[in-house]
Structure formats: structure tokens, C-alpha cells
Design a binder for these strands. Structure first.
Length: 853
RNA sequence: GGGUGAUUAGCUCAUUUGGCUAGAGCGCUUCAUUGACGUUGAAGAGGUGGCAGGUUCGAAUCCUGCAUCGCCCACCA
């Protein structure tokens, strides 16, 4: 076959992938029970990061496995327009050209970004191919595809008609840099050190004052009340009176509200309904006016001349200065509080009053909660279920509006003559439309991207239209990162139930974050980001996959270690060399017949490989990827390579050898698709065009349990010989003699080779060191001096055996144990005890012999 | 403040209804070897399972408390 000594992934991977793709192996077969996964769409114009690699590998393992199990498999890839992310990148481009979004219409911007994305697009998809994902590329969906928009509109209309959509002036999280609002869960809160200022608001007669505490003095200019607790004796007499708002000529009322915490600050709170969500609610309760003092560009508005047009942080300083000058500043103290930040630029999120589209979440969350409690969706790990339910329990209405041109326009129009008259209409390309003689102006905002991606499972499968892939809805499993449990998974469940009446998927598997080797979060600023493509090109795609999957469990953030990738690469090479050896032994024109086990080793390897295939199946059904990969790794390395291939050198059963290689390749294929397929393509007994990807999962083969067990005994004997001779001085080859032992007799040559013995002979007069652990009648021939030196070894082993006997003996003399423990366990203990006793006797005899000399 | 996860070998992690002597990979030590593979083979060292109690015949696993580290949610101005 002339395979090179080491496996060179880059020489085979691209061709193998192209072969798979052109053969149509990635497409649903149309045969068997449907199995479906929809890939969480990576950013269309970005590069994959290590988390994407993990995602793709986990999904592809499942996909390849179930394809081999004969299921009708759909793995639907996607590409995300990544509304906000992409917009941020594009806006930077605009800045370079000294332009802003306000220089263009929405249509112009949209088509510019479209072209921008188009230029960049494709990298991500090539990278997924390099990872070996067997996705059905023809079915790829881009998040701005016509059908996505169509479905998003239909859903919006449905929700609108059911009165679940409303437009309202609310406090939204607003980034003045990006000039868009965010959903609550998109805001990043950080604990920060700040100052709590105490400011005096004089009473109208200027005789008294009320001191409020605030961290945001600049919003004072928008205050419309001061609130105190209704039972607060300090302020009770002031409730209902008015105070002077400093730096202005406004008079504002002192109101009583239970919300106020008497213990905090001064017990008096300034109320700014336009710039604080709690104040907004208090304002509603007390019918207070709302005065916006920070504009959407972050500059002061509706304020006295001296502050107008000034950016908020600077305004804070000036307000403080002015207060100081007016002698109204009563004190300041350090405080640590949480401040919301834009997750993209890190600037402080301003709570702003804005007219936005909201979705009432209560009814949707209710239905989702019921479905989950009914057990319609299984979560891996299980505790994520509790978290989702909790999220639903405390859910607030969803702000769907984004002020970003790169997205799906909200299909709503406002009557130019009546601002309260909004209608649903899909003619979003027209700035104005006429309906019933009235002119309507379109909404310029777009949808939060999660609104459309929340519908991903039924969009991608064309479920609502009963399209070709609709049999794949609901999905078999939703695999994604645990960080988007709320923004994505929870919403898919709600929208899926609402729109299709079914849960969108039956199971959810959430993987954790991939951390760096020291358990730190990867980030550009720390410089610890690992580029999966670099690792891939250095060690190979399969190695990356094995390395990523190993030592990783559901929902857990876990470190990435190149060590594991190297171990993966070594495994691929091991597999490669097993194949090299076997193919060389079988010859170029070999065509195997039905495997017929003839030796103990044959029986044993059937048991090992068959057992492994069943184990992997059970583990994958439970999403225990790491353990499944581990099983494959050890079966192939420790069983197949270390024992069976070695044993095969002493026997001649080519059909069995071919079967073992074949089974190992199938077993390893979901975990190391490229190397296994590469080897498969070199097997002389398959016709051209036959592919491992399209072959079946190994079927169990019958074997003789007793023979397999006997092989294990031989292994024990070999191990003992190795162990004892390694301990002996001189490190030379020894001879073993045995007495009346047909098992040894029948496998002389095998034992001699495996244990690297000088000789193995039968004898009537045993001599030397008894191999007591094996339970066979065998002795290692050594001279008396060596025997004597070995005495201490024997003594140690005797002591160990005795203490083990004591432990087991104590257990067995315990009445409760005998009564309460399962019978088989008690049996095992009894057997253990008698075996240990035998060993003790032998060791003792052995020692007596030595001592007697 | 509420929730949630972690704490096991030098490192990264397993150990799934509580039951063999708590296992892997990497690292470490010793040794081997010229045709499957040095990306190898053999052997070995290394663990009071965070701490303190409790339940049980039996606990890394269940319960209680404590400690440390993470993450998520909430947002007291």
C-alpha cells in the first residue's frame, strides 16, 4: 500500500471532504426515521472561533453517528447576518470615509451592508468544511433570506392580531454611541466604584430643605418629583408640598412611595421618569411629567442654557460645580454600584424614554413553562431546565425594536394625521403608503435579530409551508452554547409553541465556554485567543475534534489544552499505523470473507469492539461525548493495537484482521472522520465510490465468552511476568516454566512474544519464582540470589494481600452487610475473599521456600 | 439580594439511581527496541476526593453547616 509512516492530515482532508460533498452524502437520505439538527448560524462574514469549532464538532459527531445508524439525517447549516455585530463593523467603515449612517437612507445602508457582507462572506463556510461538518449545504439558510423575512412577518402579524404586540413609550437600554436600544439581557452590568452625592432641594420658602442622594446628578435637571417613604417621620410633614429644583426655576412635588428605602442614602430620592426605569414606574403611579434631558446622541437637551448640548459625563461635572457654587451640595460618599454597559463598545447604557415595539411575554412564557414542566423538552445538563423556568417566571416584555438599518424592517406604518394609528403592512420598501385615503409613514426601526432567529427551527425546515424538510420539525436536538440559553433557546421554545403549536425540539444540549488552558475566558485583550484554524492546520482536523471533545461535559466551562489535541493527533497516527500493518499483512488484493474467530484473541477482540460500539451508542444517546470518545480511543489503542495486533503477529486469520480494522474505522468515524475515511479509501476490498461516511455502525458479532475470558487470563499472566521481571535486577530476559496447564501450553508462542521471554517450557519440577497473581501453574526461572533479593517484593505483596483480606473479611462478618447489600455483591465479596486467601497461602509458601534455602 | 456550578493525582478532567483496590490524557521516573507506529512499547510513582458534622452495612456520590473560586439573573437612587 505504501502508506507513509505518519498520517499527514493536510494531504488528505480537502480531497476527502470534496469527495463527501460531491457524492451527496451530506443530504438527507429520505430513508429511516428522521434525525435533525439545525446549526446555530455563525456570523456570515466573520471567522469561526473555538466555540464554533466545539459546536460544530459535537453536532457533527451526532450527525455522523445517527447517519451510520441508518437514520434519515438532516444537518441544516446557517449563516447569520449578525445585525448588530455587522453593523458595528460597517459603521466603522463609514467612519473611515468620514460618513455616518445619517448620510444615507435605510435602503441605501441596507444594500451597502449587503454588498459588504457579500464580499466577506464564505470564509465561515469554508472553515466549517475544514472542521469536517457533514452539513447539508444546499439547505443552508441565511438569516436575511426571503423565507426568513416572510415567516418573521407572518409571526409578527399573528402576534399583532392576537394583541400581543404593542407600541409603547418605555424606558429602554440605549447606547448613545451606537444609537440603538437593547433588550434587557443584552446589557452587561459591571460593579463600579462611584460617588453618591447628597444634594439639597430647598423648600419654596427656602427655610428648610430636603436632601436627596444620587449617583447621577446630571439627571437632576429632568427631575419631576422627590420621593420619600410614606412612613418616614423625617419627611412626613413635607409630603404633598413642593420644593425648588436646584439650578432651575421649576417647582417639584414631594411624593410618598413605598419603593423608597428609608435606610439608603438620605431616604429621599429624586425622581427622573425619563431616565430611570424605577423612576419611570413611580412617575406612572403618581402621574408625573417626563422630561428627557439626555438626547439620543448623549448630549443634554431641554436644560438651562449653560448645560445644553453638553455630553452627559461633562454635564455631570458642570452640574456638580454649579451646585457647589449654589452651596447646595451637602456631601459625597464612595459607593459601589452596578452600571450597565454596551456589550459592544463598553460605554454606559443610558436608560432612555423611547417609543418601541414590545411583545407581551407573559402568555408565551406561560405556555413554554407548561410544555417544559410536562417534560416535552429534555435538558442536558438538567439544571438548565430550572434556569429557563426561572427566567420565564420573571420575564418582562420584549423590546423588539432596534435602530439599526442592517436587519429585517418592522412592517408597521403610522398614520401621519394620527400618531396613535399604527397599521401592519409589509410594503416596507415604501417610505409612505396610502390606505383608505390616509397617508401612513413607515416605521424605520428593524427587528431585534433574536426575533427572527427565535423562529429558526420552523423557518429552516419550512415547516409552516410543509416543505421538503418539514418532516424534520421538531428538531431531534438543539445543540448550542449555554450562554444563549435565554436570548435564543428560551425564545425559540416560546415562539415555536406559539406559531407551530409544538415544541421546536425534543432535547436541548448546551455546551460550555471553551476557556484557555489556565481556565481563563478567552479574549482579544488578554491575548489568549486560540484560533481553531491554526490549530487545525498544525495538527489536523480530527486531532482538533478529539482534543476539543475530550474532558468536556455538558454546560460546563472548560479549558482547552493543546496537549489534548496532540493526544488526538497521536491517536490518528496510531489508527493509521494499525491500518498500515494490517493492510500490509493482508496484501493488495485481499477480499475478506465472513470473519470466523479461531483463537482466544479473536474471540476477545470481537467482544471488545462489539462492546465498545454498544457503549458508544448508549453514551451518545446521553450526550456523553467525552466518554464516548474515550471509549473509542481506548478500545482502539489499548485493545486493538496493544493486544490484538500483537497477538495477530502470532496467528493467521486475515478475515478477522480485516473485520477488526473495519469495525475500528466505523467506531472511530464520528470522532475522527477524516483519517478513518482516508484509510477506508485504501482498503482493497471495497469498490470504488464506497465511503465510510455512508456505511453502517458496527453490528454486534457473536463470540465465545469463555474464550474471551481465557484471553484475559493470558493477559494477566503476561502482565505479571512483565511486572515481576521489571522489578528484578539486571533487566534481562527470563524463562518461564509451567506445569500441567493446557491454556499456557496452547498459547506458548503468544505468551513468549508478549512477555518477551527467553523460553517457555513445561516441567515436572517447578523452580523459581511462582507467578501467584495469574492463578496459573507457572514459575519464573531465576537463580537463588535473585530469588533471595526478591524476597522483600514478596513480603510487600503478602502484606497487601493480608490487609485486603482483612477489609473484605470484616465486611463479610458484618451481619447488616450480609442482610442488606445486594446478593451478587455479597457473592463477589466471598469470591474475592477466597481468592485472596489462596494468594496469601501461595505467597507464604513461596516465602517459606526462599527462607528455607 | 436570588439562583446556579465548581472544589478529586503536578496540570486538565472523568467516576449517573451510594457498592470491586477512585480512573483517563498530558507531565514525571525507570527500562526497552531497528520494519505497523518514537506522534512507539513495557513498567512505575503520584490521591486523608476543600473543611467539619450527619445518614448508611457501605459516602467522592445523599443531608446540614462552613470556606474558596466562577457564572447567570435582579438592580438601592
Amino acid at each position: 500500500m505504501n502508506l507513509p509512516k505518519t498520517y499527514q492530515p493536510d494531504q488528505y482532508e480537502p480531497n476527502i471532504y470534496a469527495m463527501w460533498e460531491t457524492s451527496g452524502a451530506f443530504k438527507p437520505s429520505g430513508k429511516g426515521e428522521p434525525y435533525s439538527i439545525v446549526m446555530p448560524p455563525p456570523n456570515a462574514n466573520g471567522n469561526l472561533h473555538i466555540g464554533h469549532a466545539l459546536m460544530a464538532e459535537l453536532e457533527d459527531i451526532l450527525i455522523r453517528f445517527y447517519r451510520m445508524k441508518g437514520r434519515d439525517v438532516a444537518y441544516i447549516p446557517g449563516a447569520d447576518h449578525a445585525g448588530f455585530e455587522t453593523w458595528v463593523v460597517y459603521e466603522r467603515e463609514l467612519q473611515k470615509n468620514l460618513q455616518t449612517r445619517f448620510d444615507f437612507s435605510r435602503e441605501q445602508l441596507y444594500s451597502q451592508v449587503w454588498n459588504f457582507v457579500e464580499r466577506q462572506r464564505g470564509n465561515m463556510e469554508l472553515q466549517l468544511r475544514a472542521l469536517g461538518v457533514s452539513a447539508s449545504w444546499d439547505d443552508l439558510v441565511f438569516t436575511l433570506d426571503e423565507k426568513v423575512i416572510k415567516t418573521a412577518y407572518a409571526t409578527f402579524k399573528k402576534l399583532w392580531d392576537e394583541d400581543l404586540i404593542y407600541r409603547g413609550e418605555r424606558i429602554v437600554n440605549y447606547c448613545t454611541t451606537h444609537q440603538t436600544s437593547f433588550a434587557d439581557i443584552e446589557v452587561e452590568y459591571k460593579a463600579e466604584k462611584g460617588k453618591l452625592y447628597e444634594i439639597a432641594y430647598p423648600t419654596l420658602d427656602k427655610i428648610a430643605e430636603i436632601v436627596v442622594a444620587t449617583t447621577r446628578p446630571e439627571t437632576l435637571l429632568g427631575d419631576t418629583a422627590v420621593a420619600v417613604h410614606p412612613d418616614d417621620g423625617r419627611y412626613k410633614h413635607l409630603i404633598g408640598s413642593h420644593v425648588l429644583l436646584p439650578l432651575t426655576d421649576r417647582e417639584i412635588p414631594v411624593i410618598a412611595d413605598e419603593y423608597v428605602d428609608r435606610e439608603f442614602g438620605t431616604g429621599a430620592v429624586k425622581i427622573t421618569p425619563a431616565h430611570d426605569p424605577n423612576d419611570f414606574e413611580i412617575g406612572n403611579r403618581h402621574d408625573l411629567p417626563r422630561i428627557q434631558v439626555i438626547d439620543f446622541d448623549g448630549r443634554m437637551i431641554n436644560v438651562p442654557q449653560q448645560f445644553a448640548g453638553i455630553a452627559a459625563p461633562e454635564a455631570r461635572k458642570r452640574v456638580l460645580g454649579a451646585l457647589q457654587a449654589a452651596e447646595l451640595l451637602r456631601g459625597e460618599s464612595d459607593i459601589e454600584h452596578n452600571v450597565g454597559h454596551c456589550y459592544k463598545c463598553g460605554n454606559i447604557i443610558e436608560p432612555m424614554l423611547k417609543d418601541q415595539w414590545f411583545l407581551r411575554m407573559q402568555p408565551l412564557a406561560q405556555a413554554a413553562t407548561e410544555a417544559i414542566e410536562r417534560g416535552d423538552i429534555k435538558f442536558y445538563p438538567e439544571n438548565k431546565k430550572t434556569q429557563v423556568l426561572q427566567y420565564y417566571a420573571g420575564i418582562r416584555d420584549w423590546n423588539l425594536s432596534r435602530q439599526i438599518p442592517w436587519g429585517i424592517p418592522i412592517p408597521a406604518f403610522q398614520n401621519t394625521a394620527d400618531p396613535d394609528d399604527w397599521i401592519y403592512d409589509e410594503r416596507v420598501d415604501e417610505p409612505h403608503i396610502t390606505v383608505n385615503g390616509q397617508t401612513y409613514r413607515r416605521e424605520e426601526d428593524t427587528f431585534d435579530t433574536w426575533f427572527s432567529s427565535g423562529q429558526w427551527p420552523f423557518i429552516t425546515t419550512d415547516h409552516l409551508d410543509g416543505g421538503a424538510l418539514s418532516r424534520f420539525y421538531p428538531l431531534s436536538v438543539m445543540e448550542t452554547g449555554h450562554d444563549i440559553l435565554y436570548p435564543w433557546v428560551a425564545r425559540m421554545i416560546m415562539l415555536g409553541l406559539k406559531v407551530t403549536g409544538q415544541v421546536p425540539f425534543k432535547e436541548v444540549y448546551l455546551h460550555g465556554l471553551v476557556l484557555d488552558s489556565r481556565g481563563q475566558k478567552m479574549s482579544k485583550s488578554k491575548g489568549n485567543v486560540i484560533n481553531p484554524m491554526e490549530t487545525l492546520s498544525e495538527y489536523g482536523s480530527d486531532a482538533l475534534r478529539l482534543g476539543l471533545v475530550s474532558a468536556r461535559s455538558a454546560g460546563q466551562n472548560q479549558a482547552f489544552a493543546t496537549d489534548k489535541v496532540i493526544a488526538g493527533r497521536n491517536f490518528c497516527n496510531k489508527l493509521w499505523n494499525i491500518a498500515r500493518f494490517i493492510e500490509d499483512k493482508l496484501g493488495e488484493n485481499f477480499h475478506p470473507g465472513t470473519p470466523v474467530p479461531s483463537s482466544l484473541a479473536d474471540q476477545w477482540i470481537i467482544r471488545e469492539l462489539t462492546g465498545a460500539s454498544q457503549q458508544v451508542e448508549a453514551l451518545l444517546a446521553d450526550y456523553r461525548f467525552s466518554e464516548a470518545a474515550d471509549t473509542v480511543y481506548h478500545t482502539i489503542w489499548s485493545s486493538l493495537a496493544d493486544w490484538y495486533v500483537e497477538a495477530a503477529k502470532q496467528q493467521n486469520n486475515p478475515d478477522m484482521l480485516a473485520w477488526a480494522l473495519d469495525a475500528a474505522l466505523r467506531l472511530a468515524h464520528p470522532f475522527a472522520p477524516f483519517v478513518t475515511e482516508t484509510i477506508w479509501q485504501t482498503l482493497p476490498w471495497y469498490e470504488k465510490g464506497s465511503m465510510l461516511i455512508a456505511s453502517s455502525w458496527p453490528e454486534p458479532v457473536a463470540y465465545d465468552e469463555i474464550a474471551a475470558g481465557e484471553f484475559e487470563q493470558l493477559q494477566k499472566l503476561v502482565n505479571e511476568i512483565r511486572f515481576v521481571s521489571a522489578e528484578l535486577p539486571g533487566n534481562k530476559r527470563y524463562k518461564v516454566v509451567y506445569h500441567n496447564d493446557s491454556l499456557i501450553d496452547d498459547n506458548k508462542e503468544l505468551i513468549r512474544q508478549l512477555a518477551r521471554l527467553e523460553g517457555l517450557e513445561t516441567t515436572d519440577q517447578p523452580e523459581g519464582l511462582r507467578l501467584a497473581n495469574s492463578g496459573r501453574e507457572a514459575w519464573l526461572v531465576v537463580d537463588e540470589a535473585t530469588l533471595y533479593e526478591h524476597q522483600s517484593n514478596l513480603e510487600v505483596r503478602l502484606a497487601e494481600a493480608k490487609s485486603h483480606r482483612d477489609v473484605v473479611g470484616a465486611r463479610l462478618s458484618n451481619d447488616s452487610y450480609l442482610k442488606k447489600a445486594p446478593a451478587e455483591l455479597v457473592e463477589a465479596s466471598k469470591k474475592d475473599l477466597s481468592e485472596t486467601n489462596e494468594i496469601i497461602i501461595r505467597l507464604q509458601n513461596e516465602l517459606n521456600v526462599i527462607r528455607g534455602r
